[in-house]
């Protein structure tokens, strides 16, 4: 069945986020023969980014530009997207389950009077049903879910659905559209940068996470260095956040973020069930802990029993060698 899907793309620091390419792949899975229309909202011309979406599998791209979308607000983006949806009347919408996706999708679903599947990690077409898989209880279990009324609307979790190969021979139309945006009731006054430069925790391919065993805020420094060598991000257990070693925005677990990187290195983390819920679906898990009885070793693929302050510098050293060779 040929369908039209809209993919709401997202940019960060002027670049498209990887989850937007993954969203295109998800839309293609839903309708292999259908049309995938990329949509980019913002305050600046995004035609070059539109081209990028085409390379990653979009058939056509619409960019919407308006001064009032300089910062993301659900109201500004909501009005712009709804006006495109009205014009295009798609069979479905896909976007990333990011900070913006989580904030915006329920509003759109409510306006469009449709069901919404949040945070899907997989999508498959079985007969005439589109079936989504999503974690529940922070990944302690999974459910398969379908939409029974309204258009197919889904947000996908970063890092789970593989983006299509970039193909620079692909072509497609990139058009721009003007929209009216009424006065906004919420205004973003300022953005204070606190997250570590570069890699976002939820999208990182490698996560180095520290627990109480790291002992202090200073103790996190070698972890940042290790993450840096691996091109990854730093996370933490609740214990480390409660002890003020790091900011709550780094917390991984049942309260906090749920991550599924290719490589998760747990450093000085004992492995409470709440923490495991947030990371146990990572592809490869390494545990480094002084205590050989620590629960984290029960789910780790590889473990080293030892003092993290000895092990981490050695590991950094060794990884640098590999990178050079």
């Amino acid at each position: 069945m040929s369908k039209k899907m809209i993919v709401i793309a997202e940019t960060k620091d002027g670049e498209l986020r990887n989850v937007s390419f993954e969203s295109i792949a998800a839309a293609k899975k839903i309708t292999p023969d259908g049309e995938v229309v990329g949509l980019i909202c913002g305050a600046e011309d995004a035609s070059n980014l539109g081209q990028e979406l085409i390379y990653y599998g979009a058939d056509r791209v619409i960019t919407v530009t308006n001064e009032k979308m300089k910062s993301y607000t659900s109201e500004g983006y909501g009005q712009a997207i709804l006006s495109v949806v009205e014009e295009e009347s798609p069979d479905g919408i896909v976007m990333g389950h990011t900070s913006i996706g989580k904030d915006l999708s329920p509003k759109l679903a409510s306006k469009l009077d449709t069901g919404l599947i949040s945070d899907a990690v997989d999508v498959e077409v079985i007969g005439d049903q589109i079936v989504f898989t999503r974690p529940i209880y922070s990944g302690k279990a999974f459910e398969k879910k379908i939409i029974t009324d309204g258009i197919t609307f889904v947000t996908i979790r970063p890092n789970n659905i593989t983006a299509l190969e970039k193909d620079e021979s692909r072509t497609g139309n990139v058009s721009s559209k003007d929209v009216d945006i009424k006065d906004l009731r919420t205004i973003v006054k300022e953005v204070v940068r606190k997250a570590s430069e570069g890699v976002d925790l939820s999208e990182a391919k490698v996560v180095v996470a520290g627990g109480r065993g790291v002992k202090s805020a200073d103790g996190f420094k070698p972890l940042y260095e290790l993450a840096d060598v691996l091109g990854g991000a730093v996370g933490a257990s609740r214990g480390a956040c409660d002890a003020d070693y790091c900011d709550y925005s780094l917390q991984i677990g049942q309260t906090g973020k749920v991550v599924t990187p290719d490589l998760y290195i747990a450093v000085g983390i004992s492995g409470a069930i709440q923490h495991l819920a947030g990371m146990s679906n990572s592809k490869v898990i390494v545990a480094i802990n002084k205590d050989p009885e620590a629960n984290i070793f029960n789910i780790a693929d590889y473990g080293i029993v030892g003092d993290l302050f000895e092990v981490i510098p050695m590991l950094i050293e060794e990884l640098k060698k590999v990178a050079v060779s």
Binding site: T114, G115, L116, I117, V131, I136, G139, K140, A141, F142, E143, K144, K145, I146, I147, T148, D149, G150, S280, N281, I285, P292, F297, N298, I299, A300, D301, Y302, G303, I304, V305, G306, E310, V311, M314, L315, E318
Partner: peptide
């Protein structure tokens, strides 16, 4: 009435405990 329906609930495959390495720390790394 709900606009979505759960058709299956399942547990993720149990993670097997992996290998804890042995020997000198340097060699383990």
């Amino acid at each position: 009435e709900a606009k979505t329906r759960t058709i299956e609930i399942f547990l993720p495959p149990e993670k097997q405990a992996g290998r804890v390495l042995n020997g000198e720390l340097k060699d383990q790394v």
